[in-house]
Design a protein around this nucleic acid. Structure first.
Lengths: 331, 331
DNA sequence: GTGAAAGCGCTAACAC
DNA sequence: GTGTTAGCGCTTTCAC
């Protein structure tokens, strides 16, 4: 069907080795040969088959990033950073969405196992530490955004506890001492540490923890509504709500508005992640920003370095977060 | 490094052909041999190298979808549909974001040219009809969401003109006759046809077109703000605004709110696409929904059919749209 | 039911 | 500066 390197060689009157050389600019090739080859390539509309090349070189220069969600998430920005970072090293980024389903994630990870890609970045995963550690023995893997307790794998996240501490403190400094938390009962490290940070901030400021101010459900948006309704049914209502995700915060805010509550004055709302949605909302949502672009670039650079070296960096890196105050906290 | 089919064959005491057979369930293999092979596979942690397989079979069973944007877009839903559709045929979907940049799109399309994927879906593209037609001679390509005038390539979209006509008519039926349009001066077919539909709806209902009610900029969100400010500075202000994208509508709405305008009562706003953002907004945004999931499934099925057959379907299919009325139009 | 062997398209020694 | 050739890991025809 389509032309191969052999066809080009024949057409140009040279050997396949020479064609390969001009294709890769590897060795010295005479002007004449080079020209002949390039002409043949054009004439035949030749495009090298990378299956052959990749098989031979045992590398693909492609990295797969698996994201648990592609809507209402910060992953798009992170992947953008990864793309930017990868470009400098001649790597391409492809992505797949697992929807947080183990079955789908496993299927997608096959691309790593069957050598279709050189490495994988997991923006949240269903694998446990033991499994991930075993995989990391044979494959180049990075975790970004979401770490796993006990995983000895290259990991890049913000300091979730400190970030959450800072967000809660920001509310306290605005005069709030009745601050509710919308969290999840997920085992995700980010969720656990974000709750920790909230609790520590209260404690450090001498504010007692009230269990009725803490709601733990799932990441599903409806939990924002359930939580807010619960809080607002208390006789002693909170004056601020901190949600560990922007989506939960957004839905909580929408719920409060529908109950006639003035956001920013009567009730302050703080989210987490600074997803694209947050600044589009009316009122715009205060939140904790992760340095997505930087995280993406950093992660991919470390991963590529791991891919091309035998010394594997499996450290956990923390990137600097940033509390952003918008209208939902009265700013 | 990692085990190959040869290693498995040796460990199982059979030939590579037999290993290949049990791997693919292709021919009859004796119980004993099959068991030996499976044991060896497990012992060696063998995972077949698809570069070898794909090279040999001249197929990858992977389809690339290139999306111009990954934030505030409807593509995520479409890709979800594609993934669902592909699964039934043993295909995998990988995606890449071009950010609407020709250079990046071209780089990503190389995966198609170099046979790393079997086909590509473009959710909007920088290629012109001539180029796309030439590519389609040698590669399996589909356009989804956004067609190209003069392209003889498998295309799946809604009927943008009719959809826009219906959205405008919905506003008219609510009693509006001062309806502004936020469109783009892009050459994208969707943009052109959505404007057409708007004009036709006005005409059919005997409403004269006013040029000051039509704003044409780019897809960038700031145009929503510029447009709204322009409309609201007119002495004869529109009572409804129809934007050809939800993002433009959302920003327009946000701008209006910040000007103290009551959305739904004083001013109605209608968007297009029904992106995830739309129902999260306060007030929620009325819009025209594209049947994303269905479009994705349909497109991928047609494309896979093209890939596996010599008869190429290059028709343009229209899917049914759906006007969704929410709070922003007073519903 | 099974094995030997050719070959997918490419790169990289190696020889000249 | 260039060509010959082995071989990357796999599937599949052909013999047996």
């Amino acid at each position: 069907m389509s032309a191969t390197i052999k066809d080009v060689a024949k057409a140009a009157g040279v050997s396949v080795a020479t064609v390969s050389r001009v294709l890769n600019g590897s060795a010295n090739v005479s002007e004449a040969a080079s020209e002949a080859v390039n002409r043949a390539i054009k004439d035949l509309h030749y495009s090298p088959n990378f299956l052959g090349r990749n098989l031979r070189k045992r590398e693909t220069n492609v990295i797969l990033v698996i994201q648990p969600a592609s809507v209402h998430s910060l992953y798009a920005e992170i992947i953008a950073g990864m793309q930017e970072g990868a470009l400098n090293y001649g790597y391409d980024i492809i992505s797949a969405t697992s929807y947080g389903l183990e079955e789908i994630e496993k299927r997608q990870m096959k691309m790593l196992f069957n050598r279709t890609v050189d490495g994988a970045v997991l923006l949240g995963t269903q694998y446990d530490a033991k499994t991930i550690n075993k995989l990391a023995e044979n494959y180049d893997i990075a975790l970004c955004c979401e770490g796993i307790e006990g995983a000895n794998v290259l990991t890049v996240t913000v300091n979730d506890e400190q970030a959450s501490y800072d967000a809660t403190t920001a509310l306290i400094e605005k005069g709030h001492n009745k601050i509710a938390l919308i969290s999840t009962n997920s085992l995700a490290m980010s969720s656990i540490y974000r709750k920790k940070g909230y609790l520590k901030a209260l404690k450090d400021h001498g504010i007692p923890v009230r269990n009725e101010y803490i709601y733990e459900g799932t990441y599903d948006s409806e939990n924002g509504e359930i939580a807010m309704k619960k809080f607002m049914s208390l006789e002693n209502k909170p004056t601020a709500v901190f949600a560990i995700s922007d989506l939960l915060a957004a839905v909580a805010m929408k719920t409060a508005v529908s109950m006639g509550i003035q956001i920013g004055s009567e009730l302050s709302v703080m989210g987490f992640d600074n997803i694209a949605l947050s600044e589009m909302l009316i009122p715009s949502l205060s939140t904790v920003a992760q340095p997505c672009k930087k995280m993406g670039i950093f992660t991919i650079e470390k991963l590529i370095s791991n891919i091309s070296s035998s010394a594997k960096d499996n450290k956990h890196y923390n990137m600097r977060h940033n509390v952003i105050l918008r209208q939902s906290t009265g700013d």
